[in-house]
């Protein structure tokens, strides 16, 4: 063992990703951004006119906003070494609640309170009752989806006017979806990289027991991650409800799994403690550009399933884990 290590004042780029704590946690994000750059270049070369058109880009922003919201929320749970399969159902539930026959100032808070309650239950089950996150959130997902269908059996209902205004059209010449994306991303990045909670979340995800021994309220941190995820899902539900101007009890069903895809493609590891919202931005954009690119290139939508699956499998295979299984 060397007694006094030599500390070079500056490290090379590669060494920095290996040695420097911040960069180590963001190495997946770096890879995602590299991929994203390649994709943009590819689209720019193959379909330059259509891809960079204002219509296409603003459509992209409007379409991707909900996925941004849930993926960012999912990122918190994954960082804390959890897993939230219930976000799709929460989106649907908030859409159902927001189109209930009630006054806006009543139902909007109810929608978010319900989401927070789901997050609390998820966290309580996973953290305090030690049920495996996949099983726990599978269970709540089923329950929440049931309630969504109970409240709103078929698509319909009237969305709150304020949401319709906030989720459609443009503001200052830019599509409103973009503002949702920027606001959510900024908030997530601030929470993870600018607050005490963020560091504690990384610590908890790495090793809950060790984090607890250092005096962190690790259980509370993990529960909070689930609550944040649920609240972000409710926001996505609000955006979708506003954009469609009506409710849909199944609107979130596809988004639940895509939220994991966005976070994982962005370099957040399922084992916790590595990754973050910056990478998730790239991950979601990769999904969006892939779908967009395949559409623009007139590829059969059936191929999108295949490509998405291949992307997913590639992403999880990039960082080899120690153990096989879940």
């Amino acid at each position: 063992m060397k007694g006094k290590p030599e500390v070079p004042p500056r490290r090379g780029l590669i060494a920095r990703f290996r040695v420097d704590a911040f960069w180590f946690r963001q190495r997946g994000a770096a890879l995602s951004f590299a991929t994203l750059t390649l994709m943009v270049a590819l689209l720019g070369v193959t379909v330059p006119g259509t891809f960079f058109s204002a219509v296409n880009l603003s459509n992209l922003a409007a379409q991707l906003a909900p996925l941004f919201l849930v993926s960012l929320g999912q990122t918190f749970v994954l960082l804390g070494a959890g897993f939230d399969l219930s976000v799709g159902a929460v989106i649907s539930l908030s859409s159902a609640i927001l189109t209930l026959d009630m006054a806006d100032p009543v139902k909007i808070p109810i929608a978010f309170a319900a989401a927070a309650a789901v997050g609390l239950v998820n966290g309580w089950g996973c953290v305090h009752l030690r049920v495996h996150p996949i099983i726990m959130t599978l269970a709540t997902s089923s329950i929440v989806q049931g309630f969504a269908l109970l409240l709103l059996p078929t698509p319909g209902g009237v969305a709150p006017q304020v949401l319709v205004q906030m989720a459609s059209g443009t503001f200052l010449g830019l599509p409103v979806g973009l503002y949702w994306i920027i606001a959510a991303t900024a908030a997530a990045i601030w929470l993870v990289h600018g607050t005490t909670f963020g560091v504690q979340l990384y610590a908890t995800g790495q090793n809950p027991q060790a984090a607890w021994m250092t005096g962190i309220k690790a259980p509370r941190i993990r529960v909070m991650a689930y609550v944040i995820s649920s609240l972000m899902a409710a926001l996505a539900g609000a955006y979708l409800t506003g954009r469609l101007a009506s409710g849909d009890p199944n609107v979130g069903s596809a988004l639940g799994l895509d939220s994991v895809l966005g976070a994982v493609l962005g370099g957040t590891l399922l084992s916790g403690g590595v990754g973050g919202p910056i990478g998730t931005v790239a991950g979601v954009l990769i999904i969006g550009l892939m779908n967009n690119g395949l559409n623009l290139a007139n590829v059969s939508p059936y191929y999108q399933f295949v490509v998405k699956g291949v992307l997913l499998v590639t992403a999880v295979s990039l960082f080899r884990r120690k153990e096989a299984g879940l």
């Binding site: 420097d20 704590a21 911040f22 180590f24 946690r25 005490t196 560091v199 504690q200 990384y202 610590a203 995800g205 790495q206 090793n207 060790a210 984090a211 021994m213 250092t214 005096g215 962190i216 403690g273 590595v274």
Partner: peptide
Amino acid sequence: VFQEFSLLANLSVAENLFLGRER
């Protein structure tokens, strides 16, 4: 100072030292 390390491998030295007392 625990015998079994309570350090977090994914955090920097500074983050580890101030974990839980960032305030």
